[in-house]
Amino acid sequence: MMWETVRQIRKTGIKSENPPVAQELSRLADNQTREIQDEILKVLGRALTIRLVDAGSCNGCELELQALGNAYYNLEGLGIKFVASPRHADMLLLTGPISRNMLAAMLITHDAMPDPKLVVAVGDCAVKGGIFGESYATIGAASNVIKVDFNIPGCPPEPLAILQGILSAVRYRLPR
């Protein structure tokens, strides 16, 4: 049994792809992973930790955030990880058109985070209300109720776009 597992691991090999962030931001050279790690280190002094709050998402954005964890994108290898407690989180990712029923929980989560409290809106819904917009049930864009550092549009944005957005948000707050 163990043997089967090990054989499968060996057969699978290493699937992680080079983070293609560089082309987009046209700044990094060959050793991209290293540079991304350095950059995160420079801003935060350690790994980047993220707390997600689904504030009315259709779950499409969550699927792509989950996909970021697969071996192709190797998120943790870049020094980025999702954490359960907001007290451990540097960055808040928001999805969905901020449903009114989630607003209180979302703000409490934000309050509980230590600085720098980066806030990133993921997906058209959180960025600009998306298909649901503003109504009796939804507030629309996250920026209507909270200061947003960076927007990642898309319905849902693909894993690479999310990764680029997360890194750009870190860069945005980098003291130059």
């Binding site: 009315g56 969905g96 449903s99 029923n101 009796y136 049930a137």
Partner: peptide, 11 residues
């Protein structure tokens, strides 16, 4: 439940 109610039926 109901936290992610987005008013779909009305929309």
């Amino acid at each position: 439940l109901g936290y992610v109610h987005r008013g779909v039926d009305k929309a």
